[in-house]
């Protein structure tokens, strides 16, 4: 069966049935989180921008923050028929695009905080992180295919890897 490609924008979060290809373009400090259940044939992706929603008002997209995106995507997986012990996760992104010698402002290291918070939230829900490609100083474009449950990561100047 042919796979439809779905491109997720900033702060988008989506859970769909296979066959499908889930794509996020040009992740810098943002995180591309993939969760999937190969038995139920369901996959989800979220494009997370920031680690935590504390101090912000409620009306924003749940996919924007790691602390709201992770529980929301797992809940949606379960609602669509996934089983929690079978759900696996892969993550990519969380780069630091600019480094200033000396004291860098805090917001330049938001990528690392995104990675930490996403990992912590997944661990708290008992979701295994099977593979990750995070950090560094380069942006990433990612594609997750339910034909082989692999996450293709394209990095400028470094080529393509599959995790």
């Amino acid at each position: 069966m042919a796979e439809n490609s779905i491109v997720l924008g900033m702060a988008d979060l989506m859970v769909v049935n296979a066959p499908v290809k889930l794509v996020t373009l040009g992740l810098g400090s943002c995180i591309g989180l993939v969760v999937y259940d190969t038995f139920a044939k369901i996959a989800g992706m979220a494009h997370i921008m920031l680690p935590d929603s504390r101090g912000l008002h409620g009306s924003e997209k749940v996919g924007k923050f790691a602390d709201t995106a992770v529980p929301a995507i797992i809940e949606e997986m379960l609602r669509k028929g996934a089983s929690r012990p079978r759900i696996k996760a892969k993550i990519a992104g969380g780069a630091q695009m600019f480094s200033l010698p000396g004291a860098s402002p805090e917001f330049l290291t938001v990528g690392a905080k995104n990675v930490n918070e996403t990992r912590k939230r997944l661990q708290r829900l008992g979701i295994a992180i099977i593979a990750s490609d995070t950090g560094g100083n380069k942006g990433r474009t990612i594609e997750f295919s339910t034909s082989n449950w692999m996450l293709k990561v394209k990095t400028l100047g470094k080529g393509i890897s599959e995790i």
């Binding site: 900033m10 373009l25 040009g26 992740l27 810098g28 400090s29 943002c30 921008m49 920031l50 780069a95 695009m97 600019f98 917001f107 330049l108 938001v110 380069k138 942006g139 990433r140 474009t141 400028l156």
Partner: peptide, 12 residues
């Protein structure tokens, strides 16, 4: 880098 990755700084 990609425009989108660079502008993540502004978005964040």
């Amino acid at each position: 880098d990609m425009l989108s990755s660079v502008l993540d700084v502004v978005a964040s």
